[in-house]
Design a protein around this nucleic acid. Sequence first.
DNA 1: AAAAAAAACGAACAGACGTTCGCATTGTTG
DNA 2: CAACAATGCGAACGTCTGTTCGTTTTTTTT
Lengths: 238, 238
Amino acid sequence: MNYKEFKKIYASSSRDIAREVFLENRDSIQIKKEKTAVKNLEKIFNAVFRISYKKGFQAMSMRDLSRETGMSLGSLYAYFSGKEKLLCTIQTHGWSIIKTNLEQISATYENPREKLRAVIKGHIFLSEFFSPWFYFTFMEARNIKPSELETVKSMEEYTQKIVTNILRSGEDQDIFKPDNHELTASMIKAMQQEWYLKRWKYRKLNVSVDQFADHLIDIVEAFCLAQKKLLVEDKSCR
Amino acid sequence: MNYKEFKKIYASSSRDIAREVFLENRDSIQIKKEKTAVKNLEKIFNAVFRISYKKGFQAMSMRDLSRETGMSLGSLYAYFSGKEKLLCTIQTHGWSIIKTNLEQISATYENPREKLRAVIKGHIFLSEFFSPWFYFTFMEARNIKPSELETVKSMEEYTQKIVTNILRSGEDQDIFKPDNHELTASMIKAMQQEWYLKRWKYRKLNVSVDQFADHLIDIVEAFCLAQKKLLVEDKSCR
DNA sequence: AAAAAAAACGAACAGACGTTCGCATTGTTG
DNA sequence: CAACAATGCGAACGTCTGTTCGTTTTTTTT
């Protein structure tokens, strides 16, 4: 599967995401009409991402946000009870996007090698598709208050566990070689994060998301596959 | 080389770093006596790192810094002309630490395989030793003003180029297999960064810096070494 | 088109921010 | 132990912050 095919299957617009957030927070949002609320939520999120990317969420003032969205200060507070709540909503929903999609992808495949490929690629393609959400979720994580922070950290551990488990079950079937799979999973995650944290670099290098994902999989398989399988190139599930 | 040996060779205290910063900025610092200045600079840097780690540099107020250092607001401004200057000084010196040490390590070895190992390990050991500097340099990079930002970005490219060049010269000597070395170097860097960005995770997993570095080198060599060399384990330069 | 509901507005407020500066304290020199 | 320089101090200033709320504008309903 390449990114183009991926997009066809998992297509969902930023409008769709805004609608999800609206339905989840209907009680705390003062706007009744779905159409109005969704339209403005979308505007708000995009503005937050644009400003935060440049100077960070803390440095973004509500007046910045008002200017960028074209909405007044008063209006903004009809959509969120405060700046803190806004941050928290984006964080929570960001993780929910990652979790939901990754679980679905993981459940689709049985064979560990295929599964590993699918999950690695899936994560990268997701981060490409929801780039601002991923970037924001990572970079602004430390700004949320301690009570919510535990939720976020457990999410982080959860997504890593998915990869660890694949490696472990692959080892049981003699497809992957034995090793410290927690550590390997961490490394994989670090390389996946690279894609959305340093996107500007790869645009400059003219590296496509497909190239990046394939390269990462090559590295992982060169290390993880049991030796005897190493020289037998399996192009079938590429 | 392991971390313990590394520390012996490259030992320098946070006091030493403070002295370097003092000597570099003697004209903009109002304090004349080296002993006083260095002592307080050290206090200031440590306080900045502690606070910034928790809530970020932007969110740190000068009153926070005053409280954490035990110095008055007025005193702080004798050491730095302003908050912006403080950020800039730490950023600049952080990169200088990385660059200077990495160049020295790189120059020590000739053989590409040894050189690659030394540079990878060196970077990780450096980041362990100067952990707050590395973390701060990465996480607060986007807060510096655009004019200085180019300097920082070129530093980033420079340190990556060191690895790219090793891979290239290794390919010429048939030690490494041909590939997109820029991309591989990026991946290596991403994994190196993982160590100082997520240090809490590895403390929890009980993974030592030596284990981490060795694991990373195993991954890199499994992928980079030319096939015929792959099964011949070379323990000599571990 | 009148009445009611929903949404948008932005001046105003209290508090926190970075920075300054006149004065107090400490350390050094003759 | 004066005299002086060096350093430390924190109240005070203007600006910017997040947030509120009475009002106006827009949309929907009658």
